[in-house]
């Protein structure tokens, strides 16, 4: 995955809460066996509505999604993350995220930023007032900045380090393969196998 330190870009306000992953990418798009081409499925049902915010030319090329609370609930489909990234998003800001979506995002290098609901709304209003507003998401400094505002956010040290280094989890775990072997040798013999 690509390393993430600081990103500056324009932002899209998505004023809806409870945006589940079925909305982010409907199931018909999940049949692909490759990892590419999912941008076409992003919010595909909503994009049919000309009034939907992503259809507003003022937000074309924006790379930060500012969404309502409980973004990415529901299905575990990582395709939701791929669709957002392939469409051009690097960051999603919301007051709360679905647990699996947030996890999937950090595995792929899409940064989920949790800010208080009132701050998210203020940021949405700011980019509605001025779609060309530049927003900076500084992972190193754990801060989101726009206009004259600067708001801190929390992220655990380990995930931050992994994102900043662009590290692959599997490679990290395999460094501890001996620990896994030791654990396996102590497992109960009656635990089931699938064969």
């Amino acid at each position: 995955m690509d390393a993430f330190t600081t990103h500056t870009g324009r932002a899209v306000p998505l004023r809806r809460g409870n945006v589940d992953t079925d909305q982010i990418i409907p199931a018909v798009w999940l049949k692909q066996v490759s990892r590419t081409g999912f941008e076409k499925g992003l919010f595909s049902a909503w994009r049919e509505d000309p009034a939907f915010v992503l259809n507003n030319p003022a937000y074309e090329g924006a790379s930060i999604l500012v969404a309502g609370p409980d973004f990415g609930t529901g299905s575990s489909r990582e395709h939701a993350v791929w669709a957002l990234q392939q469409y051009g998003f690097r960051v999603v800001i919301a007051a709360r995220f679905g647990d699996i979506f947030r996890n999937n995002s950090t595995k792929m290098g899409l940064l989920p930023v949790v800010l208080p609901a009132a701050v998210v709304e203020a940021l949405q209003s700011a980019v509605e007032a001025d779609p060309s507003l530049e927003v900076t998401v500084d992972l190193e400094g754990r801060q989101v900045r726009w206009g004259g505002e600067a708001v801190g956010f929390e992220i655990d040290d380990y995930t931050r380090w992994r994102l900043m280094e662009g590290l692959d989890d599997i490679g990290l775990t395999l460094r501890n393969a001996d620990d896994v072997t030791v654990y396996e040798n102590g497992r109960q013999p009656w635990l089931p196998t699938t064969v």
Binding site: S76, H79, N103, N104, I170, T173, L174, V180, E184
Partner: peptide, 22 residues
């Protein structure tokens, strides 16, 4: 618990997952 595709790959490769206890 449910996981995404990156984690599916992780479990296939290592039979483990890094996780914080909820």
């Amino acid at each position: 618990f449910g996981i995404g595709t990156s984690e599916v790959e992780h479990v296939l490769a290592t039979q483990t997952l890094p996780a914080y206890r909820p």
